[in-house]
């Protein structure tokens, strides 16, 4: 199988997942689409190296996160980042999405990325620290502060929403 065909199959299978992560990072469905597009282009550029990696998903996640942080630094996402525009598909819980993305938007980009990697991507503290090039204690303290802020922004119903219990097991990777 050719490398482009490999890439195409992988990208098709993963673009939705990458997009959801990007929405959490950017807070804006349109910017998220741009971010995933840029990520896929960069992933293709390094595809021969990516497919030699033990875990292509981890490689793609790293490219996505670093592209996000680089674009933040360059100001490419600053104007509309966390403008909290909703997706017209109405998927998920729009009200919760607006509240959660607004709360995430209050976090600095690195803190937001750490929180999303730790809890949305379910990565260990050590893995997040490696990806973010910081110490494990920095990840722990940043995530604790970020959790406290999110808790103060989301009401109790959103925070402990029982109907959502069990969704984690259904999540598609």
């Amino acid at each position: 199988m050719g490398e482009y065909q490999d890439f195409e199959e992988y990208a098709r299978a993963r673009q939705n997942r990458l997009y959801r992560t990007a929405v959490l990072l950017c807070g804006d469905p349109h910017r998220a689409q741009d971010l995933v597009q840029n990520t896929l282009v960069r992933l293709l550029r390094y595809w021969p190296r990516a497919i030699r990696a033990d875990n292509v998903d981890a490689y793609a996640r790293t490219v996505l996160t670093r592209t996000f942080l680089a674009e933040q630094r360059r100001g490419l996402l600053s104007r509309r980042a966390h403008a909290v525009e909703d997706n017209p598909t109405g998927a998920g819980d729009p009200a919760l999405r607006v509240t959660l993305l607004a709360a995430l938007g209050e976090l600095p980009p690195r803190a937001r990325a750490m929180l999303i990697l730790r809890y949305w991507e379910d990565l260990s503290v050590a893995t997040v620290a490696g990806l973010m090039r910081c110490s494990q204690s920095t990840v722990r303290s940043t995530c604790s502060r970020s959790l406290a802020l999110l808790r103060s922004r989301l009401d109790a119903g959103e925070w402990h929403a029982e109907p959502y219990a069990g969704l984690g097991a259904q999540r598609s990777r």
Partner: peptide, 20 residues
Amino acid sequence: ALRRAMEQAVDGLAPRVDLV
């Protein structure tokens, strides 16, 4: 709880066009 909230917030979202 945060993990569940994140799941529910973006569950089913997809890009408007095929980015591949």
